[in-house]
Amino acid sequence: MAVQSAARGQRKKTGRIGRAAGYGFVLPAVLFTVLFEYYPMLDGIFHSFYRWNGSTVEKFVGLDNFAEIFRDGVFWTSVKNMLFFLFFQIVLMIPTIAACIVLFRIKNSKMQYVYRILLCVPMIIPGIVTMLLWQFMYNPQYGFLNQLLDVLGLQQLQQLWLGDPALAKWCLIFIGFPWIGTIAALIYLAGLQNVDGSVWDAAAIDGAGPVKKALFIELPLLKGQFKLNLVTVLAGTVTGYGLQLVVTNGGPGFATLVPGLYMYQRAFGSGTSDYGYASAVGLILFVIALAISAISIKYIRSEE
């Protein structure tokens, strides 16, 4: 009896210690998540219903910010630009797929390995360097593009590039030419490697041409990877604005302004600190991104 109860006591004790230890292990993670992730998110939602400048002015205004956004021509311009970027970012997923398929079909495995490493090189260059480099290449007076046209005797094709409102958007799209995304490429290659070898045999017997083979064999196989990359592109383009912030700051005029950057400018631009309004823009983007996230979860799961 005594032994039994002692044993029970022991179990109880370790149970309590285990419990305490359990909290000790997980609480830091929970606290970090709540403090640095949830709190800002909720605070942002909360303040999107305020007129708020970060210090002296803080006033509840209901839906005024949203009403103002809907009337705000600049916001709609930025949405139009965002849709432009979205369309091309999706179309420009193709080069990466094409390059991966070609790379995968190369028989010399040593060379294949070398190409893979070369494809990875852009990733060791900090993203900011790539952007600044391209900004320099577009410089109308001494940038690479106009110098190249000069050397080729094609002066009449020289452009203002980023200085031309009609061209600036296209220039941003062109950054990243030839549009091989390292991460996306690695994901596609992983997908191709994962495939059961027998499909290749079947294809070889059929004697299908290279393009036909790509359309009917490799592409269907890459569907899952494509969806994954698509969601990344969607969410990144809807909410992202680093490129525009660094290279054009939304200009000239509003030619390259996107909603994320507009949010940033209203909060941190010179002379303004309209945090309430910016939070409201952020909330709209948040809802869109949330929808994309929800759809993607459903959509990716449904086929796997």
């Binding site: 997980v26 303040h47 945090y275």
Partner: peptide
Amino acid sequence: FPGKEPLYWIVFAKMMLPGVMNLIPSFVL
């Protein structure tokens, strides 16, 4: 330990919630 699942879900669910509007409140925090 009690409450493990809810705690886990708190952390896990944030994975699905986008962070685009965190910038300004995070700055203030």
